[in-house]
Structure formats: C-alpha cells, structure tokens
Amino acid sequence: MIRRAISFAVVGLALLGSAAFADPPPEQVVICSWNTEWMFDNYDGDNFSDLAKKMKAPSREDWDWKLAGVEKVVREIKPTILGLQEIENQRVLFYLNQRFKDEAAYKYRIAFIEGTDYFTEQDVGLMALSGLIGFGRREMSKEEFEDKRNMALTKHIFGTFEWGTGADKERVTVCNMHLRARGDATNLRVRQAHLARVWVNELIKKGENVILMGDMNTDEFATETKPDGDIGTMIGLDTPEKDDDLFDTLVELKDPKRHTHLNGQQYDRILLSRSLVEDDPNRKDLSFKSVAIRRDLVIRKEQDKDHMDIFWSIPAEERDTSDHYPLVVTLDYK
C-alpha cells in the first residue's frame, strides 16, 4: 500500500551535518513554546476541510489583529527558539516575520515542513534568531510502524542548533510537536509520546542536548506524572533506567496551578535532557536557569472563560490572543 510505503520512509532531516561556521554562543538561549490558537489568515482558498474554513480569521481586519497580538508576544519574550503550534502554514510565519522586517534584533529564520493533519489543517513550525543549522520531519521506520506501542506524529518538526566552536560548541536537537487532543485520546497520545521518545533515545543516551516541547494536550499535571501516561512516557518513566529521564521544566514553577490554558489544564510542556539541567563545571555549556508562563502577554482585560466557537465574537479589545499561554524556558551559557 502507498500509505504504508510512506510510513516506512525516513524523510531526510538535514540534522546530521555540522555548520562550518557556527553562530557565536549567546549569553542565554530563550526557548518559547506557544499554541497560538488557530493562527489562520482570512484567505480560505488554500483550506480544504470545513473545520479549517470555519476557524480561519473572518476578515482581513481580524487577521491583522491576530498578527499584531502574536507579534507583541514575540517582541516581549524575544525567544532565541520559538516553537509555534496551531499555525496554518509557512505563509503565516512569513507574515509574522515581515512585521520585524529590517529589525536586526528580530531577524528570525523560519523552519517549516507541512504535516499530515488534514482534518484541522493545523501545523507546527519553528522560528530561530540564531543557531539553526537544519530542520525536517521524521517518519516511522518499518520496525517502528509494526510496534503497536507507537503512533504517528502528524504535527511535528525537528530542528538542530549549534553555537560556539571547539570544546565550547553546544549542539541542541529540538522537536516541536502537537499531540492528539481530547481526554478520550489519552491512549493515542501515549503511543505518540512513545514514538517521540524512541526517536531521541540514542541522542539522550550519548549525553546530547535534547528538547521536546509543544502542546501535548495532556491531562497529566506536572506533579502527578504517571509512568504509563503520555508525559510520563515521553519523560522516560516507563523504563527502569533513571539517568536518561527528561526534566519537566513545569515542576520548577512556584505557581501551584501551573496552568498553560484558560481552562486550568497544563497542556504545554518543555522537556529537557539532563545534559541541559546539570551544568558541566569543566566547560562552558547550556544549563537550565528558569521557566515562566507568560499569561500576562496574552490576557487582554481579564482571562477569557471560553473560546470554543465564540472566539471571533468576543470584542477585540477584550479578546485574549490565544487560549494557551506562552511557556518560556531560559538556558544560561556558562
């Protein structure tokens, strides 16, 4: 079958090469993961599903409002690596990038490859101020496809980043993803989480820097992670080994709610390999400094109570930019 043949293929990631001249190491690397909630422009000529046509911006004025809101957040956070979910396509990233045109401080590069969620037509992408040397998708191998613990990731992108030279060179592999939604899809998310973890296992075992981030749509709270849950599986709690477990940055927040969505759920995560948490005293390297949820940049007047089917009917001056809040992690280069 054609479908299986595609599933077995491994799409070239452009992740294995090394830049001849890596970007200089920044003092900090700021990572932001944010579901921008239906970041679709007002043109539906490139939308095919009824849902995508329904959820697009109703007018050019509404689309300009959405872009301005996302722009404000990016300006305030100024992430080195920005991972966005629920975007329409590469064109909307281009439109966003154009709002920083001729500003050297916001000279972002775009990384995008179309996914396979044809029901919502939502996708994910990366934008980077520095360090980006390659990006791509990955598909299941024959063995991974036959292992029923795995399920395909329809919305994901890998990016490889490098800074510095010689002994101080830092290389980071980032996977930005958007997992299956709804509470009744937990078993599907566990299988997606298992596949994501399989793809980065070897890198983690070799002590390389790995970041898994995105809208995981999880029902698990950071302090209640289970070995058989979606986040627990992605972290590595389902195996007896402890030294390769990822670090859930959300647990470091002092706010006991830690919610990243207006409904009080903790859908979003930035997970770090231990190499990014434990500082190497013998060399300059990236190490975790802090985590924050920037609700303040998204909420307009008071927090919206609901967006389902009413988003564009809320007055613009009251409408929150998204139902998700940006999750921001800062790494020090020291």
Rank of each mutant, 00 (worst) to 15 (best):
G134C: 09
T160I: 07
N150Y: 14
E121R: 12
I113E: 15
S33H: 09
L188G: 05
V174D: 02
A5V: 13
A128W: 01
L246A: 07
T239H: 05
L188N: 10
D280P: 08
K205N: 07
I211V: 15
L237D: 04
L203E: 14
E278S: 08
A22R: 11
K305R: 13
A128P: 02
M308K: 05
L271D: 11
L253F: 04
M127R: 02
R294M: 09
D23E: 13
I87R: 12
D248Q: 08
G164M: 11
G12Y: 00
I113W: 10
L67C: 12
M213F: 05
A316V: 03
L195T: 10
P25C: 04
Q122N: 15
G134W: 08
N209I: 10
S273K: 10
E162P: 03
M127A: 05
M1W: 08
L331G: 08
Q265Y: 14
S130R: 11
K107L: 07
R75T: 14
Q266F: 10
D147S: 11
R189W: 02
W312S: 01
I314D: 11
D41T: 09
N176C: 04
E76K: 14
F119L: 12
K205H: 09
E114Y: 01
K226I: 10
G166W: 09
V11W: 04
E252R: 13
T260K: 03
N282Y: 06
E76D: 11
N176R: 00
R269T: 05
L13H: 03
A196Y: 04
L51F: 11
E27N: 14
G214P: 00
D62C: 09
D323L: 04
N263I: 00
G232S: 08
Q266V: 06
E146I: 03
I293E: 03
F48W: 14
